[in-house]
């Protein structure tokens, strides 16, 4: 928005002498940056500086109490990469991210379509959908842990009452059940944001497009494939990039439901690095893991956006 102001100040002046024009151009060139300076300063302070610190920690030997003891090159990275646990955790992170982002994107497409229809009580349903997003993530996760609890959980109770099981199931004990359950919770809290993004995108599609597609004889499915999906490309891109970053970095769900146990089998990178840093006190290794995940996300974002942009 600041850019607009700068441009507006320069543009409306009628063409005058060369000097004035140059001065104007100069002012027009500087003004935006002047406007941007405070935010740039903030970004440097709260983003660039910590990232610099992170890289410097990742390349240092850090004692158990947190004192930096000089540079060690890539020692921390080789420690991490040689640890088989890291690769298991990376695999979990991949399943976790692709599972949550993929499934919630597909479900949200459907939900957005539904919410875009006229039906009685639409406003109520729309506002109800916001709730899982509005509630704190930790609260949601803890409530789900209670629902899935072995001794007192509501899910076991319901299943027993329906005579579907005759013995309680220990949902959060084995990764075979706990990991899918956590992915489910992840999807549950990701859907609101994604559906609303898509809903906004759907509302921006002009109705005439569907009408003319209908005239050309397109049925519901081909309307969806040839009109809706292409028109939703931008929201799809934004939701995928943002969701991937959020979900990849999501800590509360796993931490409050299984803490990554047993034996790191439900850890993702973020819980693993938290344990490295604050439980095992291996700050250098933790920083190295953090740098790796930072680079992975950067790589993904650049590759994905590049792919989408090129198609445009």
């Amino acid at each position: 928005m600041n850019m607009h102001n700068g441009a507006a100040a320069a543009e409306p002046k009628p063409a005058g002498g060369r000097r004035t024009r140059r001065r104007l151009r100069l002012a027009g060139g500087l003004a935006p940056y002047l406007w941007l300076a405070p935010s740039l300063l903030l970004i440097i302070l709260v983003t660039i500086f910590p990232i610099f610190e992170l890289f410097s920690t990742a390349l240092s030997k850090v004692s158990l109490s947190g004192v930096k003891k000089g540079y060690v090159g890539l020692q921390n990275f080789s420690n991490v990469l040689r640890d088989p646990v890291f690769w298991g955790v990376l695999k979990n992170t991949l399943i976790w991210t692709v599972g949550v982002v993929g499934i919630s994107t597909v479900l949200s497409l459907g939900i957005a379509q539904l919410l875009n229809q006229e039906f009685p009580g639409r406003r109520l349903v729309r506002s109800a959908l916001i709730v899982p997003w509005a509630v704190s993530l930790i609260i949601t996760s803890v409530i789900w842990r209670w629902i899935l609890d072995y001794h007192y959980g509501a899910l076991n109770l319901i299943l027993q009452k329906l005579h579907l099981i005759d013995q309680n199931i220990y949902w959060l004990a084995s990764p075979a059940t706990s990991f899918p359950a956590m992915i489910g919770v992840g999807i549950f809290v990701t859907i609101p944001f994604t559906s609303f993004l898509f809903l906004a995108g759907l509302q921006a599609i002009p109705g005439e497009l569907y009408e003319s597609a209908g005239v050309d004889g397109a049925n519901g499915w081909s309307k969806f494939v040839h009109v809706t999906l292409p028109m939703l490309r931008q929201p799809l891109m934004i939701s995928t990039v943002l969701n991937t970053i959020y979900v990849f970095n999501s800590f509360p769900i796993i931490w409050s439901m299984t803490k990554g146990e047993p034996v790191n089998q439900t850890d993702t990178i973020i819980t693993y690095l938290y344990k490295l840093a604050f439980v095992a006190h291996k700050m250098g290794d933790a920083a190295a893991v953090s740098v790796i995940s930072f680079l992975l996300l950067l790589l993904f974002s650049v590759a994905y956006i590049g792919l989408v942009m090129r198609r445009e």
């Binding site: 109490s65 947190g66 004192v67 930096k68 840093a277 604050f278 439980v279 006190h281 700050m283």
Partner: peptide
């Protein structure tokens, strides 16, 4: 506590 002490030390 562990996190804050870690910050204090570093």
């Amino acid at each position: 506590l562990e996190q804050s002490v870690n910050t204090m030390v570093s």
